[in-house]
Each structure stands twice: as C-alpha cells, then as structure tokens.
C-alpha cells in the first residue's frame, strides 16, 4: 500500500474539469441530496467548487494533524514519567493516524498525497495556526489536550454529519480519539494542580498562553467570515461564533474544577443570554500568525520540509526495490 500511495502520477490541479458543463440535472440531484442531509460519495457527481472546497478543507485539516505532531512531540523525550511518556507517544501517533486517513479522504477527490504535501511545503496550503505557538513547559501538553483538542472537537463533531461521506466517516473516528486525548490532557492538569506550587504555576502559565489562541481556533467572527458556500453545501453546519460560544460555555466550569483562572477579566455569565460573555479577541494577532508571523511558523514548516527532503532517498529506495521485485517476479514467470 505504501509504495502505491507514493506512486500516484502528478495531476495538474489547474486542469479543466472533465465535466466542463455542469449538468443541471446532476446539480439538482446533488442539491436535493445535500438538502435532505444525505451523503455525497466519491463517485457521485459534485460541483467543482464543492470538490475544491473539500480538498482545501480536508487537506488543511490533514496538514494540521501532522504539523500538530511537532509541538507536542517536543515533550516526548522529556516526559516526566514513563506512563506520561507512553500516553504522549500514543497521542502523537494518533495525530499521525488522523493525518493519514484525512489525506486518504482527500485522495478520494482526485488529488494525490504528494501534491498535497507539495502544497504544504511550498506554503500554498495552510494548517491550523494554533501549532505556531511554542510548547514551553510540560503543562502545555495537558493544556493542548484540554483546550486545543477540546476546541477541535467542538469544530469537528458537526463534521461527522457533513455532506461528504468519506470526510464525515473519517471525522467520526477522529472525534472519538480526540475526546480521549482531551480527557487525558485534563487528567494530566488535574494531577499537576494537586501537586506542588511550581506545578500549579506551570499549569496557570500554560493556560494563560493557550486560552486566547484556542478560542481563535474557531476562526473570524461570522460577520467577517468567507467560504459561506460551505453552509449551503452541508460542509459547515454550525457558525464560527456559535461554536466558539459553546466552547467557552463548556470550558469555564472545567477551569473552575481545575482551579485555574482563564485570562479574560471580561469573562462572566450573562443571565439574559444564557451564555458567558467574553472579551474582545485580538484579531491582529490572529491574522499575524495566519500570515506567517507566529513564533513558530518558520520553524514548524522548516522541520516538515527537512523531514520530507531528508526522507527522499528512502522513498526512492522503496520504489526502486518494489520495481526490482516486480521485475524479478515477471522474469520468474516468463522463465516458467
């Protein structure tokens, strides 16, 4: 499977679609299916814009999973106990697995993993900005599980019912594992909060650094949001602001149980709305990081590119060996 996956011929992403004229009947059938909450499958007709939107979103998601291995991977070799080392290794391995089946879901739309990798490495594709923040102490590992994975779950649960079948099915598994990661992260933090003052300070420090970036993960306010077709197509079913509010509402109580302070003086319950109010998000920071100026943007991508380039000879060897094997088998058959 491995060599086959690598050996998909390059395709021209800008090539004219084969179905240059979108058939009105197909469109009507597509719309009806989406409106009824049904799934579009890989072989079904779909509008080119829908296909492109999905490729962009799924590959961005896959890239986020594999770039996301780096900040937490930063702590594997320094994990403070063997149990925590094993948990973290398993978690980071899960992230790689998520990347793998998301790339596979994207491939059902007619792109190759190599093309998607090229887009990541050449900065044409983005990944979640959250991973451009540094992991500075061990509590960051727990806070990433609790807040970052928590926000990701909030974002991803609606995707389990999105209109594209392969993506929806991949997300069901991803969400199950993410929930597990979130609980593990929270457990790590609970243990530290029951520990020494130094451990408690580490947790608070990590919460202070990750809180705002986590709520930025839901993206711009609805009024400033693009890609609105996603809602019509059944890809995005709940708006950014609604998801963000849901996340804040769920997290405040968890922070109280943990005994940490969320770094927002304006955070307070609004009886009238039935939700927590929270302070203004620093969108300038958000866009700075999205546009490549976060502390780790350059390093994260450089690390991915380096791994890919240094691995080129290995991938070439695997292909060469597979070809030799096939040639030997053919020669054997011919001689027989």
């Amino acid at each position: 499977m491995y060599t086959q996956a690598l050996d998909i011929p390059q395709q021209n992403a800008d090539a004219k679609p084969l179905r240059a004229v979108e058939n009105a009947a197909y469109q009507a059938e597509f719309d009806a299916k989406v409106d009824a909450g049904g799934f579009i499958e890989a072989k079904d007709w779909m509008p080119e814009a829908y296909r492109k939107t999905l490729i962009r979103q799924i590959s961005q998601h896959a890239h986020s999973e594999i770039v996301g291995m780096l900040p937490e991977g930063n702590w594997i070799s320094r994990a403070p106990s063997l149990k925590r080392k094993a948990i973290l290794l398993a978690k980071v391995q899960d992230e790689g697995g998520h990347g793998l089946y998301l790339y596979a879901a994207a491939e059902t739309l007619g792109v190759s993993r190599d093309e998607l990798m090229d887009a990541l490495h050449s900065r044409k594709a983005k990944y979640s900005s959250i991973f451009n923040y540094p992991t500075l102490n061990w509590a960051d590992v727990g806070v990433i599980g609790w807040l970052v994975d928590g926000a990701a779950i909030m974002n991803q649960i609606p995707l389990c019912k999105c209109s594209y079948g392969p993506y929806a099915r991949a997300m069901i598994r991803v969400c199950k594992e993410e929930s597990f990661h979130q609980r593990q992260g929270y457990d790590l933090l609970l243990t530290m909060m029951r520990g020494t003052p130094e451990q408690q300070e580490m947790v608070q420090d990590a919460v202070n650094r990750w809180w705002w970036p986590s709520i930025m993960m839901f993206g711009p306010h609805d009024k400033d949001s693009v890609h609105t077709d996603s809602a019509r197509w059944g890809i995005k079913r709940i708006s950014n602001d609604d998801l963000r509010q849901k996340f804040v509402d769920a997290t405040v109580k968890q922070a109280e149980v943990l005994g940490v302070t969320l770094p927002d003086p304006e955070l307070k319950w609004n009886e009238e709305r039935g939700h927590y109010d929270f302070g203004a998000i620093d969108w300038e920071e958000f866009w700075n990081v999205v546009n490549g100026h976060g502390q780790c943007n350059v390093d994260r991508l450089a690390e991915r590119v380096q791994a890919w380039e240094e691995g080129a000879w290995v991938r070439e060897a695997a292909l060469a060996h597979a070809e030799k094997q096939a040639a030997r088998e053919n020669a054997g058959r011919a001689a027989a």
């Binding site: 991977g73 594997i76 290794l89 790689g96 791994a307 890919w308």
Partner: peptide, 22 residues
Amino acid sequence: LSEWCGHAPVLEEDMALANMAL
C-alpha cells in the same frame, strides 16, 4: 526511537516508529 516522531521519511513510518517506541 521516540525522537523520530514527526520526522520520518513518510507518515506511515512516523507511525510505525512511534508505535515501536511505545
């Protein structure tokens, strides 16, 4: 082996090496 995590030549090997480290 855990040092390989996130740096292997291909994603499948990232997972395999992490799995063996585990």
